[in-house]
């Protein structure tokens, strides 16, 4: 139940100090700058949206010309390109990466946090050192490595290799972050669980992992989003346009002079962006805190 604010010129009710002219001017300038920047952000994004629906465009995007609402670019995208393949591929890779990362890192994070074993410090240092080497350092070898393994193990697809690369690249930093989080969980909980009858695996499964859920969610989220944003790795490893991920796939719509489909690209970009943006907005707090709690590979 709220009360109406009573307006009374004689009484100054605000908690803050009254506005001086200097402060008023600086406030106005602040607003101008902020609104200006908001415009700078929103205009290009709005253009992407508008272009996807602008039927008055052929193969090239035009802005400021006649506007005719149409869904023909979307139709083109769905029917004439491998868009749905790209979506499926990306989702498969993203989910698999997230799951694999979670599986591996949940165990290593637990092991490094709760056990003192020989080689622990040394391997932790090595992990951190490896973490600083960017993934692209190995691109020369990846392609050939895959051929070798594929010859020995049938069914070892390029996507599988891509997933392994994504997961492997994240093991170091994610273990470190998770370990840090689990370190913050009191070991008395482990003791109580042992007295209650839990062995190592049960402590892991019933006590530690449920408590670490927030951090696990962050790790899963980052591992899931990663493949959506990456252009370089799929462009190196995947050779069949049908097997591309979204980044590489959409690029094909605009890099071929003879097959230019810019509006379709805008449409595809819009569709890709919407779920990710929603994800980011809904979980921005967790994502930022996850990043700042440990140097995550950019």
């Amino acid at each position: 139940m709220s009360r109406k604010k009573t307006k009374n010129d004689a009484l100054y009710l605000s908690d803050r100090q009254p506005l001086t002219t200097a402060k008023l001017i600086s406030l106005i300038i602040s607003y101008i700058l902020l609104i200006f920047w908001a415009f700078v952000i929103l205009w290009p994004l709005a253009q992407i949206v508008m272009s996807s629906f602008n039927g008055n465009q052929g193969s090239y995007i035009s802005i400021g010309g006649e506007y005719k609402f149409s869904l023909k670019h979307f139709t083109y995208l769905f029917n004439e390109t491998y868009f749905w393949n790209w979506v499926l591929n990306t989702i498969v890779v993203a989910v698999a990466t997230a799951l694999l990362t979670l599986l591996i890192v949940s165990f290593t994070g637990y092991a490094y946090s709760r056990f003192r074993f020989s080689g622990r410090k040394a391997s932790l240092m090595t992990i951190m050192l490896l973490q600083t080497v960017p993934t692209f350092a190995g691109i020369t070898a990846f392609y050939t490595l895959h051929s070798i393994v594929a010859a020995v193990i049938p069914g070892f697809t390029r996507q599988l290799f891509l997933i392994l690369i994504y997961a492997g690249g994240g093991i170091a930093s994610n273990t470190f972050i998770l370990k840090g989080y689990i370190d913050g969980v009191s070991t008395e909980l482990d003791d109580a669980a042992r007295i209650d009858g839990c062995g190592n695996l049960q402590v892991y499964r019933l006590i530690i992992m449920p408590i670490a859920r927030p951090m696990l969610a962050i790790i899963a989220l980052w591992s899931f989003i990663g493949p959506f944003l990456d252009y370089m790795m799929p462009s190196i490893l995947l050779n069949d346009p049908k097997s591309y991920t979204l980044a590489t796939g959409l690029h094909t719509l605009i890099n071929d002079q003879y097959n230019m489909q810019q509006p379709a690209f805008a449409a595809g970009g819009l569709l890709t962006a919407i779920p990710i943006v929603i994800l980011f907005i809904a979980l921005q707090k967790e994502l930022v805190s996850g990043l700042s709690s440990g140097a995550v590979k950019g």
Binding site: A38, Y60, F228, A247, L250, H251, T272, V277, F280, I281
Partner: peptide, 29 residues
């Protein structure tokens, strides 16, 4: 403002980059 300023990070970078690439192409808007 906070939600708006979040957008450049939220929208996958490759989309915005490629889009700007189109906008700045020789016949681009």
């Amino acid at each position: 403002f906070r939600t708006t300023y979040l957008l450049p990070w939220a929208v996958p970078a490759f989309i915005t980059i490629m889009f700007f690439s189109i906008l700045f192409s020789p016949q681009g808007p």
